[in-house]
Design a protein around this nucleic acid. Structure first.
Lengths: 239, 239
DNA sequence: CCGGATTTGTTCGTATGTATG
DNA sequence: CCATACATACGAACAAATCCG
């Protein structure tokens, strides 16, 4: 007979996170994948019902989204998913093209072998997924892995504030980017970009890496159709 | 006789802000001016008492501070004012020296005369205050006006995301900077810097402006004593 | 212009998790 | 290891503000 004290701990602490944080992440996801569309109103009451919790954690999650700039909240009026203008999207790409090369070059300076291996693993995973036929779910998964790759690539820079800013920039345009990836040949190109990045990192060549990152970002920024165009695409999809 | 419909709206909505936002701002202030010191524990209950409100608005304010990176919060444990390492302070200066020149040059491109006048007004106000003897309160006021000046200078860039990021960077090192300003001759130098900036803006010379901003930031970054030194200074003050 | 319906903001009580003895 | 003390997290009800008819 097994003594109780010898049994493995069964009560896994899933609850190490606040409920509000879990809801925050879910809402983030829904905004990024378009389940909650730009301009849509968010009802705290309704969400609370859907999650089966009280309004309080939902409320906190909404405040956090507001702080992150994913929604806009006006006292006593309500909260809506933020609508980005064309100008704002371009601004974000400009900021990325300044900040991500910086993170890259610093990362090349400080990256250690374990981190390189990690990056390689993500890339392997990515290449597996890139072979699957494009659909909403694979597009989402590709986006997630791509973000993970980039964050892992920048992390060795040891610049935590910068990492947080970049993370925020990605999230704010995630929805737009996922809609583009869904109807493009981006996955193939992504593979090549990543391989080049890894190559530079292995050689600790931060300068070349930064240039590459900047060049690719500027290229992608040009590819982004105007918000109006995206809106038209949506209209077409719903006909 | 004036018809009622022609009268200006009299009921000014002072209450347009949430209580949590007001508390957020107050706590921000207290962290920045050192009333709440780095590493100090924050008790939601205690603050609620002090503000004469319930714990919920305080809680939300603390969550926002946490999102902004001014405090660190662990579920069921508590919240402490964030302690910046030397490395993190230097990172923030590096980011500023990249982002603020960018904002400057764009601002020079789009600034209109009204905005130039506004900037000049703030500068006039600043010069008045700079003549006062240095004390904690004048130092605080100088910091506030200096920040306002810079934000107004960057605002014409029309890059709202960038402005928000810069604002966050300023706030995160406000405490450290105020402690330095309190014991330095910074105010005089600030005047000259600002006049140069205004001169460039008047001529719409974004390139020179950006170079100036960058140069000054790099200079100030060098002047920042290490966190250890600052800590020693505090020790000395309390003896 | 006013009153009900709805939604948000706040209060308070209770549950839950963490740290000490 | 367990019990107690403490602070935080959540839930339900009340109050305040907005919108619509």
């Amino acid at each position: 007979m097994t003594r109780l004290s010898e049994l493995p701990v069964t009560t896994i602490k899933l609850n190490n996170k606040r409920m509000s944080e879990q809801i925050f992440e879910q809402l983030c996801d829904w905004i990024m994948d378009g389940t909650l569309r730009a301009g849509q109103k968010i009802s705290e009451d309704e969400l609370a019902d859907r999650f089966g919790v009280s309004r309080m954690p939902v409320r906190e999650a909404v405040r956090l989204l507001s702080a992150k700039g994913l929604v806009e909240s006006i006292p006593y009026i309500g909260t809506t998913v933020r609508v980005l203008t064309d100008h704002e999207v371009r601004e974000i790409y400009l900021l990325r093209s300044v900040l991500e090369p910086l993170a890259s070059s610093k990362a090349a300076e400080y990256i250690i072998d374990v981190e390189l291996e990690q990056l390689q693993n993500i890339q392997t995973e990515l290449e597996k997924n890139a072979k699957l036929p494009l659909s909403l779910s694979t597009s989402k998964e590709l986006y997630r892995l791509n973000k993970e790759f980039h964050m892992c690539m920048y992390a060795p820079s040891r610049m935590n504030t910068l990492l947080k800013i970049i993370d925020g920039l990605w999230d704010s345009i995630a929805n737009i980017r996922m809609r583009i990836a869904y109807t493009s040949i981006y996955p193939q190109q992504m593979q090549h970009e990543h391989r080049d990045y890894i190559h530079c990192l292995k050689q600790r060549d931060g300068e070349t890496l930064a240039q590459l990152v900047k060049k690719n970002l500027e290229f992608h920024a040009k590819q982004i159709p105007s918000i109006d165009k995206l809106f038209e695409m949506d209209q077409a999809l719903h006909q």
